[in-house]
Amino acid sequence: MSLTACPGTATPPSARPLLHWTEDGEARSAPWQSENGAPPPRRVVIADDTISADAAWRLACEGTALLWRGDFNNARQLLQAMGRRVVRKPGKAKPAKAAKPAPPITEAFHLHRLAQAQRARSLGMLLIPVDDGYRIPLRRAPDLAAACSEAYGAAAGPFVVSLRELLGLVGAHEWRKKGVPIPALDATIHPHYGVFSPVRGEYLDLVAQAPLPAKTLAFDIGTGTGVIAALLARRGVARVIATDQDPRALACAADNLGRLGLAHRVELLQADLFPPGRAPLVVCNPPWLPGKPSAAVEYAIYDPDSRMLRGFLAGLAAHLEPGGEGWLILSDFAEHLGLRSRAELLALFEAAGLTVIDRLDIRPRHPRAADADDPLHAARAAELTSLWRLAPR
Rank of each mutant, 00 (worst) to 15 (best):
A254S: 10
A381M: 04
V283L: 04
L166E: 02
K97N: 12
L376P: 04
V180Q: 13
S52K: 09
P290S: 10
A27N: 12
R235F: 11
R69M: 04
S306L: 07
G261Y: 12
S29F: 12
V87T: 10
L78V: 01
E202G: 01
A53C: 03
L348W: 05
A379Q: 01
A5C: 07
G353D: 14
R135I: 14
A210R: 03
S2T: 13
R389H: 08
A334N: 00
A351G: 06
G224A: 07
L144E: 09
E344A: 09
A229T: 11
N285Q: 06
T50S: 15
P287T: 00
E321W: 08
H336C: 07
I128Y: 03
I241S: 00
A372T: 06
P90L: 06
V356C: 15
H112R: 04
E350G: 11
L114W: 05
V227Y: 01
R340G: 03
E335H: 11
I241R: 00
K94T: 15
A263N: 06
E107C: 03
A238S: 11
P286L: 03
G353T: 09
S14P: 15
P101D: 08
T216E: 15
A102V: 10
R265T: 12
F219V: 01
T9G: 12
V170P: 04
W288A: 15
S386W: 00
A93E: 04
S29E: 15
V266P: 08
E325V: 07
A381K: 07
L346M: 06
A233K: 04
Y203W: 07
R176M: 11
S294W: 07
P13T: 08
E174H: 14
P7K: 01
A378Q: 08
A96W: 09
D361T: 11
G91P: 04
F219W: 11
P39R: 09
A55S: 09
D373M: 10
E202F: 05
R278I: 09
G315E: 12
A108M: 05
A296P: 01
A230K: 04
C252K: 08
L309H: 01
Q80W: 10
S341G: 03
I221A: 03
Y134F: 15
K89R: 14
P12I: 12
A145C: 14
L79E: 00
A120H: 13
T11D: 13
R393C: 08
C252N: 15
K292P: 15
A145F: 06
P287G: 04
L390S: 05
A381L: 07
V86Y: 08
H112M: 04
L269T: 10
R164K: 05
A56E: 02
R235Q: 09
